[in-house]
Amino acid sequence: MIWEELKPTLICRNVDAVSSDDVMELVGGRLVAEGYAKQSYVKALQTRERSFSTGIGIGSIGVAIPHTDPQHVRRPGIAIGTLRRPVDFLQMGTVDVVVPVRIVFVMAVQNPNEHIGSLQRVIALIQDESLLKRLLLADDKEEMIRLIREKEETIERAAQAS
């Protein structure tokens, strides 16, 4: 489960960023500081985002899922950042569609095949607009972790029921 791995130190609220480079440094930098990624990770995130953008515009809240090559990662982890103001990212797969992003899920991934469950749940999280709204309005990091925990438990129950 994603929430089990989420520590307050991997969550940044109301990040003061004006560019995607800032976001990588401020949110992606948490993964470096906490030992999940190497020093080279932030620069690699920034470079990769320029070649292959990760913005995803769904509904009213834009999301981005920055990530980069496994060689910059020490162990798998996810850092979450809510942005004080929307920051422009390019939509994944495009070179000209701008997405104003309010929430980022920065992923440190080594072997994606070992974390398929987590990757699938990240997609479920970003597709839940009401969850994203509640994450933006959350009073503190603990509430954000609780919201994600509840969402993941709902997904688990649905999977078991089917």
């Binding site: 990769r48 292959f52 899922i65 090559d69 994606p112 398929i116 990757l119 997609i123």
Partner: peptide
Amino acid sequence: CGSGTVTSTM
């Protein structure tokens, strides 16, 4: 996908 790992696996 861009890195040939994360999104393509999803």
